[in-house]
């Protein structure tokens, strides 16, 4: 299984061609409406004072999403950013802060971050959630953050993510634990999403 990374950590990661030239930095991640996979990235220029770029990076142009850089084949893979984000949602715009519920209606918490798989797949694997007090009991001052796997059948309704009941049976406290949890569960996790 490829390395898992938090989508927020992708911001400012350089976009580098296979020829070794840095083209831009990642500004934000764009994923599809079902929050199932990454569809692309919005970009910022490389200079200190350069603002957001008009071009975006679609996932088809990505060679590999790595720990230190997003590798692309060449500069021609970039497309108009407005066309890319028209029907999709950037993470910051919709997913962050969304409520997470189970099908039975139990409130899990709110999304702090989205965990994606590196490499060539671009899957959304889970969410980092600020757990609600009912879901993870504990002292009020110390709110727990847990990693919740995405599960197979997630539905996005407005600003809420509805997970199947068994998806939240196991949660992890940190990213290494989450990697073990997601990698160790047999069945649907082994293959990629359809």
């Amino acid at each position: 299984m490829n390395e898992l990374m938090a989508a927020r950590s992708l911001t400012t990661r350089p976009v580098v061609t296979l020829g070794g030239d840095a083209v831009a930095h990642v500004k934000d991640t764009v994923c599809d409406a079902a929050a199932g996979r990454i569809t692309g990235f919005t970009l910022t220029g490389r200079g200190l004072l350069s603002g957001p770029l008009k071009e975006g990076l679609p996932w088809q142009a990505v060679h590999a999403l790595g720990h230190d850089a997003v590798m692309i084949r060449d500069r021609r893979g970039l497309v108009n950013a407005a066309a890319m984000t028209a029907h999709r949602q950037s993470l910051r715009a919709r997913l962050l802060g969304a409520r997470v519920l189970t099908e039975a209606g139990t409130e899990i918490g709110t999304v702090l971050d989205v965990v994606v798989e590196g490499g060539t797949g671009g899957r959304v694997v889970g969410f980092r959630v600020a757990a609600s007090r009912r879901f993870v009991p504990g002292p009020t001052r110390h709110r727990r953050r847990v990693y919740v796997p995405r599960g197979e059948s997630l539905t996005v309704t407005g600003r809420a993510l509805v997970l199947p009941e068994d998806a939240v049976r196991h949660v992890a406290d940190d990213l290494p634990g989450f990697t073990a949890l997601v990698g160790g569960v047999p069945g649907p996790w082994k293959g990629s999403l359809p």
């Binding site: 350089p14 580098v16 061609t17 296979l18 020829g19 070794g20 030239d21 840095a22 850089a69």
Partner: peptide, 10 residues
């Protein structure tokens, strides 16, 4: 070796 550019050797 794949490429050598302004950012890195790939």
């Amino acid at each position: 070796l794949l490429g050598l550019g302004d950012y890195a050797l790939v």
